[in-house]
Design a binder for these strands. Structure first.
Lengths: 194, 194
DNA sequence: AAATTCACTTGATCCAAATCAATTATTTGG
DNA sequence: CCAAATAATTGATTTGGATCAAGTGAATTT
């Protein structure tokens, strides 16, 4: 259960065996069935969540009832409503499981203790957030510059693996497109051999 | 010149006098005239830049020659092409000064030394990136859910100060709108007393 | 295995914002 | 202080993608 998280942590920072043992104590493992929620919009997001198995999605529902997916989190990724988790305010996103999943949960209090007792974790999260920030920036620019088709092409080319696990309507939501538009543009791509 | 950066650092983390003296040595102050570049797209972004005075913008130019502004950086903010700075690859953004400005520059090498010698800086940047990430996420969802008018309302309500310093066409670019659209929607808002 | 729910496709129509084009401010630099 | 460049407005037209609507297919549930 903890193998995956250590593998991911150690890709970014070195850890001693003692640190690993300590880190373990801060996390609570949990199994989540498909469709089960980790947080519901409007409630406080009490956990930062590491996905060790499965696939979660974080999304917001707008005034008109449309879902807007902020992030897919397969195994090896973190998820949470960061604003809510770190500030204690209410969550803007709901997070639920798209597949039966296994996660490691840490509370805010334990997160603070973790970074105090294992300072290198500050570096780990600095690097993690740094990379996420770069990705988010690109997605934002892409949403302004690229056509629907370009956005689709881009994501499928860069995440072929993940695409197999994500229904088309949810991918549309992630890309900021209607399901109809995504369905239609796929046809063009198939028949256009470029 | 360094007052502003320490004020900003100390809003997030405590620093000893010795640490401050050390931090100073890693940064190189520089004055930048309006329209001068800090990085040009396609070159390597060699510096992480703290703005102590003035206003910079980071933007990408697309295939059709349209500018897309990623970020405005007034005094107290950081700017750089993070991907280029941290990976050494070529920069996706150009960054230039919108006003005569003063900045503090740090190279990648010195950044690494800084975080090694003053570990609390890892925490500082963790917090900085964490907050930026939250903001970027919201902007991305907003770009999918909100109308042009809602985006404009939102930014003017939350950044009245900054709006005075930003020409309308650049604000339009930041919001992902054409200048014409922004010009037109402003009229509606003025005559609508809500 | 039938029933119900959910995902995907296809067509017709609509609309918000882009684009094209011209005119009028407003800056800025010489 | 004037000329030239840049920014903002306004109008006419186009368009990419949304929305509305209906039908088809696939997957859970019982």
């Amino acid at each position: 259960m903890y193998d995956i998280i250590f593998k991911h942590l150690e890709e970014k920072v070195p850890l001693t065996q003692a640190e690993k043992e300590l880190i373990k104590t801060f996390f609570k493992p949990k199994k989540i069935k498909k469709k089960q929620f980790v947080v519901v919009e409007g409630h406080v997001c009490n956990y930062l969540t590491f996905v060790s198995k499965g696939l979660l999605k974080a999304y917001n529902v707008d005034d008109k009832g449309n879902e807007h997916i902020n992030q897919f989190s397969p195994e090896g990724w973190w998820t949470s409503d960061m604003s809510s988790f770190f500030s204690g305010g209410i969550s803007f996103y709901s997070i639920d499981a798209m597949e039966d999943s296994e996660v490691l949960l840490i509370t805010r209090e334990d997160f603070d203790n973790l970074t105090l007792q294992v300072p290198v974790m500050d570096r780990y999260f600095r690097l993690l957030f740094q990379n996420s920030l770069i990705t988010k920036e690109r997605r934002l620019i892409s949403s302004h510059t690229h056509t629907a088709e370009e956005k689709y092409r881009h994501i499928t080319e860069n995440n072929p693996d993940l695409m197999k696990r994500i229904p088309q309507n949810l991918l549309a939501s992630y890309l900021g497109l209607s399901p109809e538009t995504l369905s239609r543009l796929k046809k063009n791509i198939i028949f256009d051999p470029k």
